[in-house]
Design a protein around this nucleic acid. Sequence first.
DNA 1: TGCTTGACATAAT
DNA 2: CATTATGCCAAGC
Length: 111
Amino acid sequence: MPLSDSRPPTPDSRTRIYAVVKRIPRGRVATYGQVATLAGLDGHARQVGYALHDLPPRSNVPWHRVINARGEISPRSAGDSHELQRMLLEGEGVDFSLDGRVELKKYRWKR
DNA sequence: TGCTTGACATAAT
DNA sequence: CATTATGCCAAGC
């Protein structure tokens, strides 16, 4: 069986997303939509979140710098990662509002 | 093969 | 600025 060359060339969209997330400078945050756009997946904001969800905690990807358009940490189904995320961001100098929101006006990563 | 769910975004109200 | 409704696309079942 001549192993045909019909294998899915899926360059793991996740890999692309991770690459973009890694590009986020320290002390700054980006929205899912922004990451999706920069990753060439304009409109796949949801997939970005999916990819990050699959991201193992040992990964060197600063997933904590990715937040939703409201400037808040997306409420996940389970896990205490959202607390860790806030902690990490605060550790980088990102200021949080009393409502637990980040001032995108100030910290939004501007390409 | 088709329906449901999901770490979202944007526009309208 | 909050809430509601709709859109988009991929993965899971």
